[in-house]
């Protein structure tokens, strides 16, 4: 009798115990937040509002996807915000230097992606070959990139003269803003890269224990280097979408605090700042959570000055929960 009881109870208990609540915590938080927001504000579920949130989330979300790779490999990239500005400025110059609209757009996009990846490569080389910690390297390049962007543009707004370019950032496909599509497709691609390719596996191994990776014949430095290149590439994508939306770049403001938003999205999504574990799905959810919180603060009329406070608190809570789970 007793044995029967335990055999009935145990499997169920085991299943419940095995469910890793940490994995689903971000998703649960998103759902709760979504429901709470729909109740709190009648405008929240408005199609235009939702579209707006998604669009806002896309710019930093795309950068957060790149940051996920860097952070899983136990690195950090603080330079992404400044990098957006620098890539944006250079991209606008590139587009304006081409006479034809179509040619300009293609050239601009190519420049943005290549230049973004190249700036990421600079970070990557300094971290791997220079053996300087990522925090210091990207803190320095954060300052450098912003400074160069301001210098190149004379600290003034760079306005585009291409008529087709604004269509990218402002365009829709099947009723969904173009940047959202890009964010979605990039997320799918990044998810596959992280979960289903050797490179993604290597990123996790390197972030968890670089020495084990070295003994396992993984090219540790190349793996780390490439995470920064990926981060730079994502910055390039985001720079195109942002600059084309307004068809102009303000080098002082563009991308300001994007590093904060990106890292926040990654951390809220459950990726460990210590490296070794994390998911793209989590990062996307994290970005959405941040976007909804921002939107709700606006809808509820909370002072814009307090939004940074709320964001900071959310990051702290997410990290606290992570540490608690690791104990």
């Amino acid at each position: 009798m007793t044995t029967q009881m335990t055999s009935n109870v145990n499997p169920l208990m085991r299943v419940i115990k095995r469910i890793d609540f940490a994995t689903y915590a971000p998703l649960i938080a998103l759902v709760v937040l979504f429901i709470a927001s729909s109740i709190a504000s009648e405008y929240f579920l408005n199609a235009r509002n939702i579209t707006n949130i998604l669009r806002q989330v896309s710019y930093t979300g795309i950068i957060a996807i790149g940051a996920t790779f860097v952070i899983i490999a136990a690195g950090i990239d603080l330079s992404v915000g400044s990098m957006v500005a620098l890539v944006g400025v250079v991209t606008m110059f590139a587009i304006n230097s081409i006479a034809g609209d179509v040619g300009g757009v293609f050239f601009g996009i190519a420049v943005a992606l290549v230049f973004g990846a190249a700036l990421g490569a600079i970070n990557g080389v300094m971290v791997t070959k220079g053996r300087v910690t990522a925090f210091i390297v990207t803190l320095a390049t954060m300052s450098i990139f912003r400074s160069v962007a301001l210098y190149l543009s004379d600290a003034g707004e760079v306005v585009g003269n291409n008529n087709l370019y604004p269509e990218i950032g402002g365009g829709y496909f099947m009723g969904v803003p173009f940047p959202v599509w890009v964010f979605f497709l990039l997320a799918v691609f990044a998810h596959i890269l992280l979960r289903h390719t050797a490179y993604g596996r290597h990123v996790c191994a390197v972030g968890s224990n670089p020495n084990v990776a070295r003994y396992s014949a993984i090219p540790v430095e190349r793996v780390i280097f490439l995470t920064f290149v990926i981060a730079g590439f994502c910055v390039g994508v985001s720079a195109v979408l942002l600059s084309s939306r307004l068809n102009s770049v303000a080098p002082g403001d563009m991308g300001a605090y994007f590093e904060l938003d990106a890292i926040a999205a990654v951390v809220i999504g459950g990726t460990s700042l210590a490296g070794g574990r994390g998911t793209i799905v989590g990062t996307v959810i994290g970005a959405l959570i941040l976007g909804i919180i921002n939107n709700m603060l606006n809808l509820l009329g909370v002072s814009a000055y307090l939004q940074g406070l709320v964001k900071g608190l959310v990051i702290l809570i997410a990290v606290l929960l992570q540490y608690k789970n690791n104990k």
């Binding site: 596996r201 191994a205 968890s208 990776a213 070295r214």
Partner: peptide
């Protein structure tokens, strides 16, 4: 632990880490 296994990987992830190809 320091050079052999990735402690937060599961069994297949560890076993295939070198032979992933």
């Amino acid at each position: 632990q320091g050079a052999g296994l990735v402690m937060n990987f599961d069994l297949p992830q560890n076993i295939t880490l070198v032979s992933l190809k």
